[in-house]
Nucleic acid binder design. Structure first.
Lengths: 121, 121
DNA sequence: CTCCTTAGTATCTATTGGAAACCATGTAAC
DNA sequence: GTTACATGGTTTCCAATAGATACTAAGGAG
């Protein structure tokens, strides 16, 4: 294994990559892509609250990093399909558990927040 | 399981929580805490590039969410120790794999980026 | 002719992230 | 005694980013 890479180092390229992954939209997109190829607007509707600009930017970066693929179909109107690459698939388990961890522990988190806020008063 | 929570929903509290987790500093902090309690400045030195302000803010939020604990020792100068809570420990496996995924796939990512950039020209 | 769809881009503003300076306290060195 | 450094922060400021909104082009439906 290449020990030249270390996420704790400031200028290591892995830092940039971690920054890309450590993004709520990136995680939701990768999680949503797990079940197969999806079109742009379908993604936009499924991931409630994401803007077109941010979705477009995020997809472009993920494509550049080789995590997702982009296929254009000459339909009318044009259709664009996004899918996970094999490299992207190596992340699905991790992404899934991170993206859904909150759903399973939200009650405990909310309780902790209430207790913390009460103590601060 | 509480099906009222859904990270794909815009106003679901899990979204806020995902946003907290999906942060490079949060991930690095949680990963660093895995091996036991650590003081503030030790964290700051280990996680290269983090500012005091951001470290302080992030730790405070994680404490409020119940993922880490904060203990103050009346030494001179004062010592503050941060540690994972049992709730925080439920995340360690996931955090570790996400934080270190880049280290194991960086070569493939860099190759993909080069190919992408060459194609755009 | 108008509205809807597709997948984006362009523009503008509000929020945030990060760099640096500052704070109080006490100990050790000069 | 006073300068320097350690602790764990907070405050201030500016640049970069995130998000909301409007716009593009090309065609189908009503």
């Amino acid at each position: 294994m290449n020990s030249a890479y270390d996420v704790y180092e400031d200028k290591c390229p892995t830092r940039q990559m971690l920054e890309r992954l450590a993004d709520k939209w990136t995680l939701l997109i990768l999680d949503r892509l797990e079940s197969g190829p999806i079109r742009f607007n379908r993604l936009r509707r499924d991931i409630k609250g994401i803007s077109q600009k941010v979705l477009s930017q995020t997809l472009k970066k993920l494509e550049r990093d080789g995590l997702i693929s982009r296929r254009v179909f000459a339909t009318v109107p044009v259709t664009v399909e996004y899918d996970l690459t094999p490299l992207g698939r190596t992340l699905t388990e991790t992404v899934r558990s991170l993206a859904h961890w909150a759903e399973h522990h939200m009650d405990a988190i909310l309780a902790s927040q209430s207790a913390y806020d009460a103590a601060v008063l």
